[in-house]
Design a protein around this nucleic acid. Structure first.
Length: 566
RNA sequence: GCCCCCGUAGCUCAAUGGAUAGAGCAGCGCUCUUCUAAGGCGUUGAUGUAGGUUCGAUUCCUGCCGGGGGCACCA
């Protein structure tokens, strides 16, 4: 990439001037007026040496200009600006060659091999059987899926894992309630309802509470026929439902881990490492604060001798490694678990140091209702399915209004609904909460998923019309020197993909792609793309094709479908 | 009480210590007899607060105010 070439040249120039070696950036200036790339190197150097930044910039620029002839062929001019920026303007031929590159590489465009040979496992959508699949679960799913796709796009071998809590108090509550009230389960919803009712009863009925505790133990022991069959039934109903929703969302998991197995394993690990853990009040705990004042104590085995989530996570890390010897394990969960994971990773560091190094916790914000945090415990939830279907209705209405002869309206409306949801989650930097208001609902306009989909469909439609008119994107060398603004933006895609991957933040890609779409739409409004009488038309068609390709590649990375017509 | 995270326009979000703090929504005014108007153009509007570091701070540091999360047998 040019960016790297420029950076290397600056390094050399700094060296030849025997200036101080510093950390600097080569970035795209905010405005096209300042060229394609800009560096702050002179200002950084000037800072430590108390020199005049503008003079330093001038000196470096002169050296760069001398080198320009052979190495910086693609740079048209180098300018020094105000406080001490050095700006690089690229040759028109650069944009043209990038355009060709995109058309040649197609869906490969933007791929890199930076993670080649790496085995990466991404764990996300950790939800619990016996509970609802609510809209809060859409966050880890959307983010985790995008992170997985970004890693694969950069050459990694990626496996997706779902870790589901199929054992524990929540399960016992649902089962105990079913038995206690003789409820019949026919659907996942009914199972989840038992869980909510059981949870409420657990709070105010001591007898029931005792029954739950007993049931919990029996679920672990698997000795009671009645409980076993209720367990299997509830588990199957809810897991099948999850699978249905995953399919709508476009996620397919390679591995499923269940707490019923990680628990056993975690238990063994804890008992084997009593030098790391301590017994306290009948439980086995890890005193995080002994290792780092920012950490706290967590219980790994409870008084009853059952492994807690902590021990289970420890077991999971090893279990994952056993089935898939990973170089990196990424775990996506809500940020309410951030502190928790710091402690777990510290404990893991004592036991499996090499695994803790490879594990990275990525946290996302919570999806909140205007009334506050959603709670599956109280049943104050909106399910993912309800949200999708409400948005589908809205999308369907639009499809019918525009009347473009869509064959499968049902499918398209779902693609749009899911696209709108995923976009709204992925557009913001992970870690921040989303306040979700169903009444205001999600936008299909402006900064939205459907806006991207619409722009893509528009490109496809244009390309089809161009083909009919006999205009191809294969333009010839004597092409007009004029560079459209959108061309100055499209070639950045690989850089953006790289950054989004490294920082595990799909939002960078979203920000970029919506900006690109806006630029293209402006380009579309200002120019007639297809014009037989105009020789420049083939270049505009080429730009359209390039944009459609980048939109498509981006949408795939984000896990948003790219319908060709809408 | 201790520990983390966050306060940007009326609303929802951007901005690796840099150039004039960007979008979208909502409001107002334009724009389809011509390639998809889910589009485009114009317009109003913001860094919680007080200091500090810096040539330069939304970004780093400190205090205060406000919000969220975590802190022993839930997941």
């Amino acid at each position: 990439m040019v960016q790297k070439t420029i950076k290397e040249l600056i390094d050399k120039a700094v060296e030849s001037l025997s200036l101080e070696k510093v950390d600097f950036v080569v970035e795209h200036p905010e405005s096209f007026l300042h060229g394609e790339y800009s560096t702050n190197v002179a200002m950084v150097i000037a800072k430590s040496t108390k020199a005049n930044p503008l003079e330093v910039a001038e000196k470096i620029a002169v050296v760069l200009q001398q080198a320009q002839g052979n190495l910086l062929k693609q740079v048209e001019k180098i300018e020094v600006a105000k406080p001490g920026f050095i700006n690089f303007f690229l040759e028109n031929s650069f944009f043209e060659s990038e355009l060709r590159k995109i058309l040649e590489q197609g869906e490969e465009y933007g791929k890199s091999d930076s993670l080649k040979g790496q085995k990466i496992i991404v764990e996300y959508t950790n939800q619990n059987p016996f509970k609802e699949f609510h809209i809060g679960h859409l966050m880890p799913n959307s983010i985790g899926e995008a992170i997985a796709r970004l890693a694969a796009f950069n050459g990694a071998e990626v496996k997706r894992a779902a870790y589901q809590s199929d054992i524990g108090l929540h399960v016992a509550k649902a089962i105990a309630y079913k038995i206690y009230k003789q409820v019949v389960w026919n659907s996942a919803e009914e199972v989840a309802r038992s869980y909510v009712s059981g949870g409420a009863l657990y709070e105010d009925d001591l007898d029931f509470k005792e029954l739950v505790t007993k049931t919990n133990k029996l679920v672990y022991e698997k000795t009671d026929e009645n409980i076993n069959s209720a367990y299997e039934e509830g588990r199957r109903l809810t897991l099948d439902k999850f699978e249905e929703v995953y399919k709508k969302l476009g996620s397919k998991f390679d591995f499923y881990f269940f707490e019923s197995t990680t628990g056993e394993f975690g238990k063994v690990i804890v008992h084997k490492h009593m030098d790391v853990f301590e017994e306290s009040d009948g439980a086995i705990v890890f005193h995080g604060e002994n290792f780092d004042p920012q950490l706290h104590t967590r219980v790994f085995m409870n008084k009853a001798g059952l492994p807690t989530y902590e021990a289970k996570d420890l077991g999971l890390a090893k279990l994952k490694y056993d089935v898939y010897p990973y170089d990196a394990s990424i775990i996506v969960t809500a940020n309410e678990q951030s502190e928790y994971f710091k402690v777990i990773l510290r404990a893991m560091h004592e036991i499996f140091p090499e695994l803790s190094e490879k594990t990275k916790h990525v946290s996302h914000g919570m999806l909140r209702l205007p009334t506050g945090k959603m709670s599956s415990r109280t049943g104050d939830v909106i399910t993912a399915e309800v949200l999708i279907s409400e948005l589908k209705v809205k999308a369907l209405k639009k499809i019918e209004e525009s009347d473009r002869g869509i064959e499968d309206k049902e499918r398209l409306s779902e693609e749009i609904a899911v696209g709108a949801i995923k976009y709204s989650i992925l557009k913001q930097s992970p870690g921040k909460d989303i306040i979700f208001d169903l009444d205001k609902s999600l936008s299909f306009e402006g900064d939205s998923g459907p806006y991207l989909q619409y722009t893509f469909a528009r490109c496809i439609s244009l390309l089809e019309k161009a083909k009919e008119a006999g205009i191809t994107s294969q333009f010839e060398a004597e092409f007009p020197s004029e560079v459209y603004e959108v061309e100055r933006y499209i070639y950045r895609f690989p850089e953006i993909v790289e950054r989004a991957q490294i920082e595990m933040s799909p939002s960078y890609l979203v920000t970029y792609i919506v900006e690109l779409a806006a630029m293209f739409n402006k380009f579309y409004a200002e120019n007639k793309i297809i014009d037989i009488a105009d020789k420049k038309s083939s270049k505009r068609v080429a730009i359209t094709e390039a944009v459609s390709q980048i939109l498509q590649n981006s949408l795939i990375l984000l896990g948003i479908s790219a319908p060709r017509k809408m």
